[in-house]
């Protein structure tokens, strides 16, 4: 089991266990974490799963693909050059065992 912590703009926190293979987006959508919709089902074409990864968890994440790069340029909340990622591209087990992310203001 991996662990994902979502920090909301208002200060509240959701912390979830996620099976390997679950993405940051899927776990949020299934468990009802506010601010993450996942409208394209995880295909990196909607940006409704934008999150800011906390610095200490950036290591080990996969490189940003061409598709993710395009979507990160269209996010509702401003992009953070180091920390912005699409939650659907971050997979428990493959990329992290523990991760903490901030949900962008405008999505929350």
């Amino acid at each position: 089991m991996a662990n994902i912590t979502y920090h909301h703009a208002k200060g509240n926190v959701d912390s979830l266990d996620a099976e390997p293979g679950m993405t940051v987006m899927m776990a949020a959508v299934i468990h009802g974490v506010d601010g993450i919709i996942g409208e394209c089902g995880g295909q990196a074409i909607c940006a409704t799963c934008h999150v800011y990864v906390r610095d200490e968890y950036l290591d080990g994440l996969p490189a940003i693909s061409g598709a993710e790069e395009e979507m990160l340029e269209t996010t509702v909340s401003p992009r953070n050059p180091a920390r912005s990622r699409l939650g659907c591209q971050l997979t428990a087990g493959d990329h992290f065992n523990t991760i903490e992310v901030d949900i962008p203001d405008e999505q929350d």
Binding site: M26, V29, I30, H31, G32, G38, G41, G42, Q43
Partner: peptide
């Protein structure tokens, strides 16, 4: 639930896949 994954990721080999809800249950 979301339909698009049903003809894509959902059909991949492995254990029973989880459907992606359109909104969480508490919605």
């Amino acid at each position: 639930y979301q339909r698009p994954p049903l003809s894509k990721d959902y059909l991949a080999a492995g254990k029973d896949p989880v459907p992606l809800p359109l909104r969480p249950e508490k919605f």
